[in-house]
Design a protein around this nucleic acid. Sequence first.
DNA 1: GACCTGACTCAAC
DNA 2: AGTTGAGCCAGGT
Length: 103
Amino acid sequence: MSILTFSQKVFELTKNIPRGKVTTYGEIARALNKPKAGRAVGSVLNKNINPAVPCHRVIKSNGYAGGYIKGASQKTLILRKEGVRVNKHGIIDLRKYQHKQYF
DNA sequence: GACCTGACTCAAC
DNA sequence: AGTTGAGCCAGGT
């Protein structure tokens, strides 16, 4: 049993994602040994307001940006600004930009 | 404690 | 290769 709540762990892992890289909701879930909790991860980040937690770097497993408190368009805008290439269809190449430290 | 919600995922069409 | 539906989980009511 750990002292940190699920939410706290999600936030901590998200903080570790470097600029110019991304990870997926599912990956964070797997890193927490809960491979099927991707949806719960999204629910947690949905409430994030802390700028120290770069939740815009967490995207869907299919390459789409996914949701964002300020709108999905803002999310892709910030990612591009950080050097992540997002094609005209809003798709991000995970093979190239995914942060793999959790493995 | 049952019920509902959602920034998800993946196998199966 | 795009869509669909069922499964799953934490949190809030």
